[in-house]
Design a protein around this nucleic acid. Structure first.
Lengths: 162, 162
DNA sequence: ATCATGTAGTTGTCTATACAACTATCTCTA
DNA sequence: TAGAGATAGTTGTATAGACAACTACATGAT
């Protein structure tokens, strides 16, 4: 196995990665929206809230969790709150901060949507990963994601201080 | 290794996949734009044209290649043509169709941008994939991408005929 | 205690994209 | 060869998100 060949397989992987994302994201979005009327991004927000200990996150924490800009999140939460799935509540001890909490209706929606979405992921993504590849894909993408997230944060810090 | 554990690693892989894309795409876009003033999508268009035998594709072919809607591509090509990197030329034998061709300036830009972008991919993506993982990641993502692309096409056909 | 600086979130504005409707052209069938 | 239907691309319009500027609040140094 030559070094050149290894580089090539990484580039092929990168290209497949891009195509897979570009094609998969709309597919899963439509499936979820058709089944529950829930856009994928909303699901992501509800999930992040659900995964948190007290089911509440500040706008800043949530923006970081779903990798959206501050303003993008403000508008996104506007829409989700308008639909009654989450609520902004004031944070104890800091009057600048808002905690986003799942409403009962949001929890119900999440319960309904989760199996549908998981099914979509299995069907369109998991099904094409063989048993002997799963661990490698998990580990490699995990490292890429962790590093990229870090780089994004650094970039944001640099911009802030500029 | 239980079947349940396998499913979990696929879901972890999916999550990492999403995070990696959300974080990486803006990073590579900024790097390329800072170095060459070239948005990533423009690079994608120029690359697709370059990879083609006669360096020309119709709007429809190009939209399919870069996974963009027809109208999205019309506007994208508007901007790239305005910048002088490509040109619309009429297709011989079909007066509805337009061929998009790389201009000399577009070719020069592509030559300048390609090594920078490849470097970014190596640095932010390839570097985190170990030698013994590369083949699995390549194969698995390749299958996912191929299947997803197929599904998108089928979906588009269904919509058209509706 | 005050003021300077930092942080949380929102708002103004711009851009990129999607979908649907449209025009122009092509193709196939009778 | 006329007309129906399919196809290529563009345009009207709506939406999601980014960045920068802003307001309100908090913190920390003196």
């Amino acid at each position: 196995m030559t070094p050149g060949a290894d580089q090539q397989s990484r580039f092929n992987a990168w290209h497949a990665f891009l195509v897979a994302h570009a094609a998969l994201e709309p597919i899963l979005n439509r499936e979820l929206e058709a089944a529950c009327g829930l856009p994928l991004r909303w699901f992501d927000v509800l999930t992040q809230l659900h995964m948190t200990a007290h089911q509440r996150l500040s706008m800043t924490e949530l923006a970081n969790a779903v990798l959206l800009s501050k303003s993008g999140l403000t508008r996104l939460v506007d829409r989700i709150e308008e639909a009654g799935l989450v609520q902004r509540v004031s944070a104890p001890g800091d009057r600048r901060s808002l905690l986003i909490v799942l409403t009962p209706s949001g929890q119900k929606m999440l319960k309904r949507a989760a199996p549908i979405h998981e099914n979509g992921i299995r069907h369109h993504f998991g099904a094409y990963i063989r048993d002997n590849e799963a661990a490698a894909v998990e580990a490699a993408l995990g490292r890429v994601a962790a590093a990229a997230r870090q780089d994004v944060s650094l970039e944001a810090d640099a911009t802030d201080s500029a």
